[in-house]
Write a protein that binds this DNA or RNA. Structure first.
Ligand code: MN
Ligand code: MN
Ligand code: MN
Ligand code: MN
Lengths: 223, 223
DNA sequence: TTTATAATTTAAGCAGACTTAAATAAAAAA
DNA sequence: TTTTTTATTTAAGTCTGCTTAAATTATAAA
């Protein structure tokens, strides 16, 4: 297989399946910015190629070969992201888009060489795990969206969603990056907005924002 | 413009135009491994986009905008090649193919960052000059194909053709790399094959091979 | 100059990844 | 359960970059 579109469809299916357990055509369409009709079309082709199991109106599932393929794409993407941040010095809000192009245009040999150069990184700049050459995915500690924390709870940022450049840029302004500690000072019930403390400074953030930041909780004083 | 094929056509036109002064559809077709009909087709599109001047049966010429575009593609390609060799440690016979994919999938920002990382290299691993961001192409000293040297002449390898992996691999076996010195010990008239000396060792090479190695001559003893 | 060969272009058509509009099935609301 | 809304699929068609086969022009040979 030789095809950027198919690679993207499979990556998206894999990621959804992994996080939400299932995936529907509408979600794929939204993520890839195509019409739902285009998705139906491609699903049929992926089924013929034996990358997915697909019965119309029923759910979509990767076959072992589809999963292997998708994991490799995710691996490529995330290794490029680490490379772009660590070696090239690109900021974390730019690496996703760039990696999304590069992931389709490199040999496995190059990816493996980059992995060595980077000393086998386990996580990408946004905290997502990097599958090994053999397809093993590093285990992550349990985490919650920041929006689920209660007043007085605190924890470490272990992952952020990586798909919105503006969002990541804003996080940087707030001083939020991986492995920083965040404390929830206040939580307002009427809109679920939060007052958080990070590096001694306090900020008000919306629920929407908090839903895209993931925290490994440490219960602390007075919880 | 957003298109791998068009990028390749423009690169090829530029390179031919630069080396041979002119370019014909047949040569493009051979280089890109497509039919001549496909070339005619694309030439029309490139003319509409104002990248080339094209009248049928007459010669093909890049417009200023086409030239600018092509130079940028060549720049991308060659910066990737240097990167792959110097940073990733990929052998020189592998970098061309890999760079050929990457060149279509990176932002100008990434290319510029790589250039800085590599400290503004002027030549790629095969001795081809790397255009600057502004489109300036480093001047190369005059060189000749090794096949043009006469018995007793010697010189430095300053460029090799980069498009055949096997060829480059074989050069490596012979110990031929950039900046090595080659001496022509014998030249046989009937087939123009050469006996050359490099690093103290002697080898017989065909005319074909010698035509793809480029030498900056130093006239030495008894010339 | 005429004839043969080679290069180039035109014509018709295909495959992939899309689109819009219409039809159908599933899910949610009444 | 019936109705309404939403999700999904089908149908028909577009656009791009190719293909093969046939026609045309240019070049080389006689
Ligand atoms: Mn990413
Ligand atoms: Mn990421
Ligand atoms: Mn090259
Ligand atoms: Mn090169």
């Amino acid at each position: 297989m030789n095809n950027i579109s198919k690679e993207d469809y499979l990556s998206v299916i894999f990621k959804f399946q992994n996080r939400n357990g299932e995936i529907r055509p509408k979600a794929i369409a939204q993520k890839l910015q195509v019409t739902q009709a285009a998705v139906t079309d491609m699903l049929k082709k992926l089924a013929i190629d034996n990358y997915i199991l697909y019965e119309k109106y029923k759910c979509i599932r990767l076959t072992p070969s589809g999963e292997e393929f998708a994991i490799n794409m995710v691996r490529r993407h995330r290794i490029w992201e680490v490379f772009l941040q660590k070696v090239v010095g690109m900021p974390w809000d730019k690496v996703h888009e760039e990696a999304h192009k590069l992931e389709h245009s490199s040999s496995d040999d190059l990816i493996n060489r980059l992995e060595v150069l980077l000393r086998y990184p386990e996580f990408d700049p946004h905290g997502d795990p990097i599958p090994s050459k053999e397809g093993k995915i590093p285990k992550i500690k349990k985490y919650l969206p920041l929006s689920d924390l209660k007043e007085g709870e605190s924890g470490t940022v272990v992952r952020v969603n990586d798909f919105d450049e503006q969002f990541l840029n804003y996080l940087t302004e707030l001083g939020i990056s991986l492995y920083e500690i965040i404390l929830v000072k206040e939580k307002r019930n009427f809109d679920n907005s939060l007052m958080i403390q990070i590096k001694g400074k306090q900020w008000n953030i919306s629920q929407k924002l908090a839903e895209n930041i993931f925290i490994e909780i440490k219960k602390v004083k007075g919880a």
